[in-house]
């Protein structure tokens, strides 16, 4: 449900970037989503055209990649992959771990169409 809010936030942010760079449109938007971010990539992609209508991002393609969940064990130090509801160490089984990847919600890159006269 809240993916539409996230899509609107993304479109705002991309619009700001387009404005800062004097771009007339946006070709491509790449985001990286971890399973622990609480945002579903496919739903974000569905919501995106609704949020982007009438903005510089209107004709942009949204590409999203899923980040793997990786935890580092505070007890044995191992770095292992984990499941969203089982963030325990894959090596020693201890639950005292920290997530090093898998909770990110990041705008990685945007590809902008910048008219030559607007370049600095």
């Amino acid at each position: 449900m809240h993916e539409l809010s996230v899509a609107q936030a993304l479109v705002d942010q991309v619009g700001d970037l387009a404005g800062q760079h004097g771009a007339k449109s946006v070709h491509l938007i790449r985001v990286r989503i971890g399973p622990l971010a609480g945002v579903v990539g496919d739903l974000l992609a569905t919501a995106f055209p609704l949020a982007a209508a009438g903005t510089p991002a209107e004709s942009a393609r949204l590409d999203w990649v899923a980040a793997p969940i990786v935890v580092r064990c505070r007890t044995c130090g191992a770095k292992t992959e984990a499941q969203p509801n089982k963030l325990v160490c894959g090596a020693c089984g201890d639950w005292r771990t920290e997530v090093v990847s898998g909770d990110e919600l990041i705008l990685e890159t945007v590809e902008l169409d910048i008219p030559e006269s607007a370049g600095d």
Binding site: L17, A23, L28, V31, I106, T109, V110, L112
Partner: peptide, 11 residues
């Protein structure tokens, strides 16, 4: 005419 901008900030 396209330029790629690396952003890397929270969405």
């Amino acid at each position: 005419g396209a330029t790629t901008i690396s952003v890397l900030q929270g969405l």
